[in-house]
C-alpha cells in the first residue's frame, strides 16, 4: 500500500477535492479521481517535500480552536482600529521574535497562521539568527504578540516535531 500511495493523506485530499469539484459520486468520476490521486502521489515523490508525521489528533483540534478564537478576537480588534476617528492614528510598527523551529512544515504553518490573523503580518524569517520579523498593527501590546507567537511555536512543535 505504501508503495502505491507514498503520500496517503495527500492522495486522499486530492481524491475528495476532485469529487467535490465534479459534484458527483458517479462511478466514472470515482475511477478518474482514483487514477489522478495515484498518479499525482507519484509526482510528489519526485518533488520530495519534507515529510512530517501528524501526531495527536486531539492536540491538533485544540490548537485549531485556539487559532480560530485568536483570529476572531483579532478581527474585532482590527475593525475597531480601522473605524477609529482620524485624530487618533493606530500605533503600528515592526518587531522581531526569536522562533526556534527547524521543521519546514511547521514554519510554513506558522507563517500562514500569523498572516491570516489580521493584526500581524509575517515579513521575513532569518534561518541563521532564528529570528522572525513581523509587522503588527498594535505595537502597544508587543508583549501580548510575543507571547502569542511563543504559544503557537510550542503548539506546532508538539504536533509536528
Amino acid at each position: 500500500m505504501r508503495a502505491w500511495y507514498p503520500y496517503p493523506l495527500f492522495s486522499i485530499a486530492l481524491f475528495l477535492m476532485w469529487l467535490l469539484l465534479n459534484q458527483s459520486v458517479a462511478p466514472g468520476s470515482i475511477v478518474l479521481s482514483l487514477f489522478l490521486s495515484t498518479l499525482l502521489g507519484w509526482v510528489m515523490v519526485k518533488l520530495q517535500p519534507s515529510q512530517s508525521r501528524l501526531r495527536r489528533l486531539g492536540l491538533m483540534a485544540g490548537f485549531a480552536l485556539a487559532v480560530a478564537a485568536d483570529i476572531i478576537r483579532s478581527n474585532v480588534a482590527v475593525a475597531r482600529i480601522i473605524l477609529r476617528p482620524r485624530g487618533k492614528p493606530a500605533n503600528t510598527g515592526f518587531m522581531t521574535v526569536d522562533v526556534d523551529l527547524e521543521n519546514e512544515n511547521a514554519l510554513a504553518l506558522l507563517a500562514c497562521i500569523l498572516t491570516a490573523t489580521p493584526g500581524t503580518a509575517w515579513l521575513e524569517y532569518d534561518r541563521r539568527q532564528k529570528s522572525l520579523l513581523l509587522h503588527v498593527l498594535d505595537i502597544d501590546n508587543e508583549d501580548l504578540w510575543r507571547r502569542t507567537v511563543k504559544r503557537y511555536e510550542a503548539g506546532l512543535k508538539e504536533i509536528l516535531e
Binding site: I71, N75, V78, A79, I82, P89, A90, T92, F94, T115, A116, T117, P118, G119, T120, A121, H135, L137
Partner: peptide
C-alpha cells in the same frame, strides 16, 4: 484609510477571514 503600506497589508485579511 490606513496611512502606510505595511498597515494596509493587514486590511484584506479581514475581508477574507
Amino acid at each position: 484609510r490606513l496611512p502606510s503600506f505595511y498597515d494596509r497589508l493587514h486590511a484584506p485579511t479581514i475581508a477574507t477571514s
